[in-house]
């Protein structure tokens, strides 16, 4: 079943509910119900934490490698370069998120004004 499987107006809402709302909220509900009954330092939860982090990194990469729309006008090397320089600045300046965001944006936007084809 896909996002565009049915033409009905309500289908996208059902799709979003099944693909995103229930899969996210079930963990919050489970958390409330099992609180105090589950060992939070269990190895299972450590493995799960690693998989969750890696998955979110894969999502980030999806937007950098396969962007749609306006960002696709920037070449791949520029997108990757902007992320890399932004990230290194973030690490170099005391892991301040705002530094990473500003540097990455500056590299991307100045690169795009020179190289991007609209």
């Amino acid at each position: 079943m896909f996002y565009d499987s049915f033409q009905a107006w309500w289908w996208p809402f059902v799709f979003i509910t099944l693909a995103g709302v229930v899969p996210t909220n079930m963990w919050r509900w489970i958390g409330v119900v099992v609180v105090g009954r589950l060992d939070e330092s269990s190895e299972w939860l450590v493995l799960v934490r690693f998989v969750a982090s890696s998955l979110v990194a894969a999502v980030i990469a999806q937007f950098v490698f396969f962007p749609s729309g306006a960002l696709a006008a920037a070449p791949l090397w520029l997108r990757l370069g902007a992320v890399a320089v932004g990230f290194i600045s973030f690490l170099g300046f005391g892991r301040r998120i705002i530094v990473g965001v500003i540097v990455a944006e500056t590299v991307l936007l100045s690169g795009m004004s020179l190289f991007a084809k609209f």
């Binding site: 996210t24 079930m26 963990w27 919050r28 409330v32 609180v35 105090g36 799960v48 934490r49 998989v51």
Partner: peptide, 13 residues
């Protein structure tokens, strides 16, 4: 999405 949001459980707990 299920795997990516498991972290909600220990956070809630």
């Amino acid at each position: 999405v299920i795997l990516a949001s498991v972290r909600m459980m220990p956070m809630t707990m």
